[in-house]
Amino acid sequence: MSEEIATVLSEIDDPEIVDQILQVVNSTGETNNPLGDSSTSATLSELYQRFLSRRQNRSPATKAQYKRTIPDFVDFANERNITSPGQLSTEVVDAYVDELQGEYDSDATVLTYTKNVRGWLRWLNERQLCGEAVYRILDKQELGLTPTARDEAIPKRVITAVLDNLQKHRRGSRLHALVALFWNAGPRIGGVHSLDVDDFDTQDNELRFRHRPESGTRLKNGDDDTGSSGDGERNIVLEDTVADALQLYIQVGRPAATDEFGRKPLFATEYGRAARSTLRRWVYEATGCRWQPQTNSHSCCDGGCNPDSDPCNQSYYPHAIRRGSIVNHLSGGLRRELASERFDVSVKVIKKHYDPRTEQDRLNDRRQAVKGAWE
């Protein structure tokens, strides 16, 4: 809308007359709308291809990132019947971020997706095809992403020392219970977020993961009844020491809190269910230099790290503990088929992404398993 028309409309008191003028403006092609409601007939898919064609001077790695990330957002929008840039809103983008954080445990991965989508949305905004707020909410600080922690599989010696130190000095705390659970059970952070106190069977040392979208929590693979791609619902057995840590946490460390649905979340704050971002901060804190083995070199950390604003350079993501847990179970002789059920991940994905053992390591593991079968 031009400045002249806006000035005229501001001086009219009758809303019906304003509406009639707007209808005439729209019908005569006055479409310079900063929100991009009708300034292009191109679809999001076509605009993505146009964006990509204007980036031929980028490196192959950068273009590969564009091809891996932006179409994911376009598909997300199309699934919600959003096909043009004028239909994009901050609510849609927020929902996309929620889905990313539910699927990926690593802030670095979420940042890669949001950074590239933000760049594309900004490109659209420069052409007045979408609003400025649509891309600005994907700012790293706005999203609270802190991709400074480590994302590789946590070494067994490190997590062992962390758990020993927490056992000695923070026994029964949320940090102790949370990290022990991540190491033994290897869940996704979304799975931990979904847990209630009643999901922990103290008699059989079992933990139940359930998909409850109607009451605010979801599992990545849902359940068979929802028509999802897999079944994330499962019961898993816990090691005795981990069950003891959880039970003590429930008795002395957990605040007596319920969420907005009246459920009793296993990991809670005084306000209710701990958010995924809160769970990540707790893991950053628990795996920082303070609790790691003294033999580690902490020359890159001055001890002034803060899990809320500046995680320790020595800290690990929750996903790194999940990866380490899977590797540890595989190295201990757990077959991939059984690991697939325990960790809710396909055998193919385990082999490709979660099993960084060398071929020699795998050979040694098979040798020990075969010898065990002989015995």
Score class of each variant (00 low, 15 high):
residue 208 R to D: 13
residue 218 R to C: 03
residue 222 G to M: 04
residue 207 L to Y: 05
residue 199 D to G: 02
residue 226 T to H: 15
residue 196 D to G: 06
residue 233 E to C: 05
residue 200 F to N: 01
residue 227 G to E: 01
residue 215 S to F: 12
residue 199 D to C: 06
residue 229 S to Q: 08
residue 223 D to W: 07
residue 221 N to H: 15
residue 211 H to C: 06
residue 229 S to N: 10
residue 220 K to H: 01
residue 230 G to H: 09
residue 208 R to M: 14
residue 203 Q to L: 05
residue 197 V to P: 08
residue 221 N to C: 03
residue 208 R to S: 09
residue 208 R to H: 14
residue 206 E to M: 12
residue 209 F to V: 01
residue 228 S to E: 10
residue 199 D to K: 00
residue 230 G to I: 08
residue 213 P to V: 06
residue 233 E to M: 05
residue 226 T to V: 14
residue 211 H to S: 05
residue 222 G to Y: 01
residue 226 T to S: 15
residue 198 D to G: 07
residue 232 G to I: 02
residue 205 N to V: 05
residue 219 L to N: 02
residue 216 G to P: 00
residue 197 V to G: 04
residue 202 T to S: 11
residue 202 T to N: 05
residue 214 E to P: 04
residue 218 R to D: 08
residue 232 G to N: 12
residue 215 S to D: 13
residue 218 R to H: 11
residue 226 T to R: 14
residue 216 G to S: 08
residue 224 D to C: 14
residue 227 G to A: 07
residue 203 Q to R: 09
residue 199 D to T: 00
residue 220 K to E: 15
residue 232 G to L: 00
residue 206 E to I: 07
residue 206 E to S: 05
residue 225 D to L: 13
residue 226 T to P: 08
residue 232 G to K: 00
residue 198 D to R: 07
residue 199 D to Y: 00
residue 224 D to K: 15
residue 200 F to E: 13
residue 215 S to Q: 13
residue 214 E to Y: 09
residue 217 T to L: 07
residue 220 K to M: 11
residue 214 E to S: 12
residue 219 L to P: 02
residue 224 D to W: 12
residue 203 Q to M: 14
residue 211 H to R: 09
residue 219 L to A: 03
residue 200 F to V: 07
residue 213 P to S: 07
residue 222 G to F: 05
residue 206 E to H: 09
residue 223 D to P: 10
residue 211 H to N: 14
residue 206 E to T: 06
residue 207 L to N: 05
residue 197 V to E: 11
residue 207 L to T: 02
residue 224 D to N: 15
residue 215 S to A: 03
residue 216 G to H: 02
residue 230 G to A: 07
residue 232 G to C: 03
residue 207 L to K: 06
residue 219 L to K: 12
residue 231 D to S: 14
residue 207 L to W: 02
residue 212 R to M: 08
residue 216 G to D: 01
residue 223 D to F: 09
residue 222 G to S: 08
residue 226 T to I: 11
